[in-house]
Amino acid sequence: MFLAFQSPGPIMLELGPIAIRWYGFLIACGVVLGVTLAQWLAQKRGVDPDLVGDLVIWIIIGAIPGARIYYVAFEWENYAQRPAEILAIWHGGIAIHGAILGGLTAALLFTTWKKVSFWPLIDLIAPGLILGQAIGRWGNFFNSEAFGRPTDLPWKLFIPRPSRPPEWVNFEYFHPTFLYESLWNLGVFALLIGLFFWGLQRPGRLKVGTLIFTYFIAYSLGRFWIEGLRTDSLMFGPLRIAQIISLVQIGLGSLGLWWLYVWGRSLPDVPSQDRG
């Protein structure tokens, strides 16, 4: 009972008419830590950290609208009735799969423009990305959203009545799926960092592309089962969109690792202009 969670509310700090929300603050923290980590890993691999910093700016520019457009597209019936809310991203309502799609598209455009290799740079981004996701998930806690079905487990989450689904309005406690995913993501982060440093100690053994393909598989395995607990999934008919995308990412990641290690293929190494 003593482990039950209850959100203190979405507002972190109010300064007159200005309200600083936990959701935005945590996303900002995740971005800053992710960028710092990616640049540090770049130095370890002999890649120009400024190049990685520039790449991250492009990824953010692509990820934020991608995450919102993706979410609004699958919730269009609701947003069509209140179009003023479409841009109110601070109220919640972004989708990580939309952010990934938008960010990868922006990264591809950046690397094409800069004429540098796409895969080694994306590998460097992967650990920071999953770390940022682990931090950002706590924004759902403060917004009392993205929770699971009712439960009586000791780590249950109290959800205020206005935020409960109509069919479970008389239930008070729900699965804290934000916590499950945050902890899972931290585990994926540890895996990616472990692989990165294992590769540094064994030159040539860890192929370029391994980290991003592993990210796709490991993150998606957790997201698939956690999504099955949630009450607010984006749907395509009777199917949960996030579970469909998770299966696609698991398949793509598995094919990528098979291509690298079973078929024995290689992706381009670090950008030649950044070699020491």
Rank of each mutant, 00 (worst) to 15 (best):
G34R: 14
W76D: 00
G98R: 12
W90G: 03
F141Q: 14
G276W: 08
I94R: 07
L191A: 11
G9D: 09
R68F: 06
Q133R: 10
Y261Q: 09
A63V: 04
I86A: 04
N170D: 12
A99R: 12
L55R: 08
G256K: 04
E227M: 10
G30E: 09
L51I: 05
V169G: 14
R137H: 12
R275D: 05
A42F: 13
L26F: 14
P176S: 04
P166E: 14
A134D: 11
Y261K: 06
V52W: 09
L41G: 08
G30V: 00
P127V: 02
G264I: 10
H175L: 11
G253P: 00
V188F: 01
R45A: 13
Y79N: 12
F25K: 08
A134P: 13
P166N: 12
K44D: 15
T151K: 03
V56P: 00
A95H: 11
P127E: 06
F216K: 05
F224N: 04
R137L: 14
L153T: 11
V32I: 15
L200D: 10
Y219N: 03
E85M: 13
I135Q: 12
F74P: 04
P65F: 07
V208C: 03
P65T: 07
W168K: 13
L234N: 11
A38T: 05
P120E: 04
G264S: 09
G276F: 11
F2M: 02
A67V: 01
G132M: 10
A107H: 06
R205P: 09
L87W: 11
W113A: 13
K115E: 09
I241D: 02
L33H: 09
F224E: 03
I212G: 00
G30H: 04
F141C: 05
K114Q: 14
L26I: 00
M12Q: 10
R137D: 09
